[in-house]
Design a protein around this nucleic acid. Structure first.
Length: 684
DNA sequence: GCAAGGTC
């Protein structure tokens, strides 16, 4: 029996179909599907893993954070532990009966690592097994058939590069996470984390926040006039969009007479190209514009993919391979009542060539609908994502949109004014993807040389605005630009910043705890506060792949570097502890006290160690409220209209966050507590 | 209870 090991069930199923010509059947082993078939007297079994099967970890004796100095962890031996017992058992069982195995995981760094981990498990039960590697970059009939006739050897170096990443990420993550959590005594539910990807992402947000806080607005002035042409009234602005001196604006203002002259009208037709095909980043950033967090958009997309409604959602590629039958996709979309007409239109106009994006890879096609769904059969959020994917796909087939833009120049007493407008003259792809369509600005019918009447003039005092905060959608894009995280992890990295209490809201606003942690890392562990650590790791991994470096050299150097950082951080322990505690303390403020106006904050009772909300004016002010003893507490700026006390959010693991009035006697309390029933999926 | 990377 030949055993073929794939990275995921989808690949196993499709490869089985191709190699067997559709004669394979499915059996379950330890709940894992295995595809079987026979060919020229040989029996085949194809097994799909669920991604990584092992993870690196510290041996159990180091589990207690308080009993181990974080710095000691740096040079400790790491172990690998199974992630999913069913997968391992199914793999072992199949390996026992096999006389050879073929590793057919994705051909990339993590895929090779997954494959080599599988080889390790296989060898435990069947040491002499012959092992080959099937290298393919797309699951198409021709490529799979060819690949399996030209098997290769495993790429040990590639897997080693993956191991280096695993080890470095765990060592830096564990040591620094424990160190800052222990020094600031933020433990268990409230621990503070540090990581190669999450920390530079947090720093990005914090630096923007500090820029906003430091921002000094510059005043400027605009001149606006109200004009009349025949019956129509309209507004025009002075061409000096920003007068930096008020006097200057006033001088111009004083000169303006009661009549203006249309000096020129320019019309320009602009082409708006349809979007490139959708990859994960585009899916997440578009979904964010529709109000879905990247984490829930990804979750929902995963579910739609599992139900066969959209293609694989984790992809960088933005170029459709020729193997995708675009016309066929449109035909299946006719099964959707909501999209039947649009699909028919595109079929009738024979538009079967999609746009091409800049990122081309062959592992998966861009995200597209694989079946026609109907709105009634999906939840509102599922429909939102399905609709987005489908509309985006249709847009990539449609013709470009045309927008007419107009600028009219008007002279008033020698001063230049303008009005500008635009309108869509051909909808093209915007018809399918109307979410982000800009509204038309229609101008009055004017002619060059025409006179207009000045009805009114006005000086507007304005100020320059600080840079905007990152929205979740923009952050996903920025992370991709900086090389932080991957298509599969960015959404979860962002979610963990919320879970740690580093940020709130969308756009993301850092809390004081997040600012304190970021500032500490910038100051004392610069390395892990910037995207450069990832960039350098990538270079080191390339050298491992080329055989120029060994994994242990790279990890060893990284350990030394961390040790030097930790030596300094240990010396500065008191200062670091104070900085982070100050940040944490500020976030413990729930709001203002109703009685005395001072801060209400989360405190702990001396004797019982139970937490409660008390007034910082104690003992003069004795305002106090009980708190649930479990779960994370976050303040809100809401005040209950019934009892008049502040509301807080309580977050318990695996449950939907619930809001609670501080006053335990509040009449609305029962209803609020009871609202945690409906769904596990919460929006941030 | 640590990270980030796969995948469900």
């Amino acid at each position: 029996m030949k055993l073929i090991v794939c990275e995921k069930d989808l690949a196993a199923r499709r490869i089985a179909d191709i190699l067997s010509g559709g004669t394979n059947w499915e059996e379950k082993s330890h709940t894992i599907p295995i595809y079987k078939f026979s060919q020229s007297g040989e029996e085949f079994r194809i097994l799909g893993l669920k991604g990584h099967i092992l993870q690196v970890d510290y041996p159990e004796e180091y589990n207690n954070w308080r009993k181990v100095e974080p710095r000691e962890l740096i040079f400790k031996q790491l172990v690998k532990v199974p992630i999913n017992k069913n997968v391992i058992n199914a793999l072992k069982k199949a390996a026992r009966d096999a006389h050879s195995a073929i590793i057919a995981t994705d051909f990339d760094r993590e895929g090779e690592l997954i494959g080599m981990d599988a080889v390790g498990v296989i060898r435990e039960v069947n040491p002499g097994l012959e092992i080959k590697r099937a290298r393919y970059s797309a699951i198409t009939r021709s490529e799979i058939q060819q690949t399996f006739q030209n098997l290769e050897e495993p790429y040990e170096h590639l897997a080693e590069a993956g191991r280096a990443r695993q080890e470095i990420d765990l060592i830096w993550g564990a040591v620094l996470t424990r160190f800052i959590s222990l020094t600031s005594t933020r433990l268990w539910d409230n621990f503070l984390s540090v990581g190669r990807v999450q920390s530079p992402t947090l720093v990005l947000l914090v630096q923007r926040e500090l820029e906003i806080r430091d921002f000094k607005p510059t005043p400027y002035w605009q001149i606006k006039v109200r004009l009349k042409d025949g019956g129509e009234e309209f507004e025009a602005f002075h061409k000096t969009r920003r007068f930096l001196r008020k006097e200057e604006a006033e001088e111009v203002f004083a000169r303006l007479g009661e009549e203006g002259l249309v000096t020129s009208i320019r019309e320009v037709e602009r082409k708006k190209a349809p979007p490139a095909p959708m990859n994960t980043t585009v899916l997440l950033s578009s979904a964010a514009k529709l109000g879905l967090s990247p984490a829930s958009a990804m979750n929902i997309a995963e579910g739609l993919y599992m139900r066969g409604l959209i293609s694989y959602p984790r992809v960088d590629n933005t170029v459709f391979p020729p193997s995708i039958d675009i016309r066929g996709v449109l035909l299946t979309l006719k099964a959707s009542p909501q999209f039947r007409k649009m699909a028919e239109e595109l079929i009738a106009s024979k538009r079967f060539v999609p746009t091409r994006g800049k990122k081309q890879s062959t592992d998966h096609p861009p995200i597209y609908p694989t079946d026609g769904a109907s709105k009634e059969k999906l939840s509102p959020q599922e429909w939102k994502v399905y609709e987005l994917v489908t509309r985006h796909f249709l847009a990539t087939l449609a013709e470009e949109a045309l927008q007419m833009t107009m600028q009219v120049d008007i002279d008033i007493s020698g001063e230049p004014f303008y009005i500008s407008g635009s309108r869509i003259v051909r909808e093209g792809w915007l018809r399918y993807l109307p979410y982000f369509k800009s509204a038309d600005v229609i101008l009055p019918q004017l002619k060059e040389g025409e006179k207009v009447q000045v009805l009114n003039k006005e000086i507007l005092a304005k100020e320059t605005q600080p840079p905007p905060r990152y929205t979740q959608g923009r952050l996903v894009e920025k992370m991709e630009e900086l090389g932080l995280g991957t298509k599969s992890t960015r959404h979860s990295i962002i979610k963990s910043l919320y879970d740690r209490g580093y940020v709130v809201g969308n756009p993301l606003v850092p809390r004081e705890t997040g600012i304190a942690v970021a500032s500490t890392l910038i100051k004392h562990a610069q390395k892990i506060s910037s995207p450069e650590m990832t960039a350098e790791l990538e270079q080191d991994m390339d050298r491992i792949v080329e055989g120029l470096h060994q994994k242990d050299q790279v990890v060893g150097r990284s350990r030394e570097m961390l040790d030097e950082i930790m030596e300094v951080m240990e010396k500065e322990r008191e200062e670091i502890a104070a900085d982070i505690r100050n940040g944490v303390r500020e976030d413990e403020v729930v709001g203002k006290c109703r009685t005395c106006g001072k801060d209400l904050r989360i405190k702990r009772a001396r004797k019982s160690r139970k937490r409660f909300v008390g007034c910082s004016g104690y003992p003069q002010c004795t305002e106090a409220y009980p708190l649930p003893q479990k779960g994370k507490i976050r303040s809100t700026d809401e005040v209950c209209p019934d009892c008049g006390t502040l509301r807080i959010t309580v977050i318990n693991k695996g449950r939907r966050p619930w809001k609670l009035c501080l006053d335990p006697e509040c009449p609305t309390k029962k209803e609020l507590v009871g609202s945690g029933r409906k769904s596990k999926r919460g929006e941030n």
